[in-house]
Design a protein around this nucleic acid. Structure first.
Length: 414
RNA sequence: GCGGGUAUAGCUCAGUUGGUUAGAGCGCUUGGUUGUGGUCCAAGAGGUCGUCGGUUCAAAUCCGACUACUCGCCCCA
């Protein structure tokens, strides 16, 4: 039986769930398209190097969460654990540096070997956007605004908090990091085990530790904002002004940091309290060093990714299944007519269900089960008159309609 | 990777201090005749009680391991 279960941390999307999942993706893309983003589809696996080089050798994702394997040709490949690295790789290998700015939207499955929880799977799905080639804060503003509009389109405008911070440019970040490490070194005895490890690899992560002891230490730690140079400070101010002008409610979170190494300047996170520990629903930031780090021409970038499963769980108005019309023939002659009539109505754009057999009672039951809006009944009487009986399954009212006027008669049910 | 909880029909759950053929609701199938669903009534199908092992005369019930799910930590979308 174990073999017949989906692999741990993976999930089938049965029709009802799949409909919600697609709706989230489609609405996100609809909004992104209005902002001028075009879709980029990249392969689901890449050379392992693509992720190693971008995510940093010490990140958890690279060190213990990647699905890496050797193919038959001996190449080391990895199922993508996130989207940005692949988009940037495509940007470089596709020569898109010639046509910056590039505004890319992507969606699809990502893979991380993690311990599954609610809202955390081993194969999960993201939608994301990236703007490559824009240095100024206009891109940051647009990217955050787009994310906010998408959440609004999903009916989540009021339930999500937008947290914002700046990591400063590379100089500011380096200066701050030094100050922070110096401070933390002096309080080593009070730090948790996790944070001692972070002190080596990713000291800024200690800022958002949930450990009480850590929090006490962090409370008096040097603040990033005090270490920003003028350029970084100005950049952040302009981002905030832009968002304020667009009425996007933002909370400044001085301790918000990013797990991945390539982020600079703007960092943001859209969170909800409705999903427990997996409250982050959309997150991203600016990554000015990434393209160059991957071997492309120095190109600034900013973007975010959002978790489709998490958004699906929150979706305010899950889309209903479409309500079909049920064509119900009685008798062999009617059966033959039903086949062509159904085809005609489908070509006209209607959703039509044609049962595979059974008497009228069974077919009516089926019509009801599939949520049909109306039944189109074809029997001997109707055939003789060149008509069909159209029965409104909500009200129970029915009327005879000439066959060649059917399309028009069905329009009133839309 | 670490810690806690859970695991009974397709779904949501009962199952008393271990004791014969494991129950309910919903869903499903069939019927309540001949061309009309949703409501109602009746009958029926469906469970190696997550898996493996142990304790016992006897295990869904107690113990252990494993697996999955779940809630935290970690990480992150």
């Amino acid at each position: 039986m174990a073999a017949l279960q989906p692999v741990r941390g993976t999930h089938d999307l049965l029709p009802d769930a799949a409909r919600v999942h697609r709706a989230v993706e489609d609405r996100a893309f609809d909004v992104a398209r209005r902002f001028g983003f075009g879709e980029i589809v990249t392969p689901i696996f890449e050379f392992t190097e693509v992720f190693k080089r971008t995510l940093g050798d010490t990140s958890d994702i690279v060190t213990k969460e990647m699905y890496t394997f050797e193919d038959r040709g001996g190449e080391s490949l990895t199922l993508r654990p996130e989207g940005t690295a692949a988009i940037v790789r495509a940007f470089i290998s596709g020569g898109l540096a010639q046509s910056v700015p590039v505004k890319a939207f992507y969606r699809g499955p990502m893979f991380r070997y993690e311990r599954p929880q609610k809202g955390r799977l081993r194969q999960f799905h993201q939608v994301g956007i990236e703007i490559l080639g824009v240095e100024g804060p206009a891109a940051d503003i647009e990217v955050i605004t787009c994310g906010y509009h998408i959440l609004e389109a999903l009916g989540l405008g009021g339930t999500v908090t937008v947290e914002l911070n700046t990591l400063g440019d590379l100089d500011s970040r380096a200066v701050y990091r030094e100050a922070l490490v110096a401070y933390l070194q002096g309080h080593k005895d009070k730090l948790s085990e996790d944070s001692l490890a972070r002190l080596e690899r990713n000291p800024m992560r200690i800022l958002d530790s949930k450990d009480e002891g850590d929090r006490a230490v962090v409370a008096d730690a040097p603040v990033l904002a005090d270490h920003l140079n003028d350029a970084s400070r100005d950049f952040f101010a302009r981002v905030r002004e832009g968002l304020a002008a667009l009425n996007i409610p933002v909370e400044i979170s001085p301790r918000l940091v990013r797990g991945l190494d390539y982020y600079t300047h703007t960092a943001f996170e859209f969170t909800t309290t409705q999903l427990g520990a997996q409250g982050t629903v959309l997150a991203g930031g600016r990554y000015d060093g990434l393209v160059k780090q991957m071997g492309g021409p120095p190109t600034p970038g900013v973007g975010w990714a959002a978790g489709v499963e998490r958004l699906s769980m929150l979706l305010a108005d899950p889309p209903p299944a479409p309500r079909p019309f049920a064509v119900i023939p009685a008798g062999a002659e009617a059966e033959a007519l039903a086949l062509t009539l159904t085809d005609r109505l489908r070509r006209a754009g209607h959703v039509v269900d044609l049962g595979y057999g059974g008497n009228m009672g069974k077919r009516m039951k089926r019509a009801n089960k599939v949520g049909a809006r109306a039944a189109i009944i074809l029997g001997d009487e109707e055939l003789a008159a060149g008509e069909a009986t159209v029965r409104d399954l909500d009200s129970g009212e029915q009327a005879r309609v000439p066959l060649d006027a059917l399309e028009g008669a069905l329009d009133r049910f839309r």
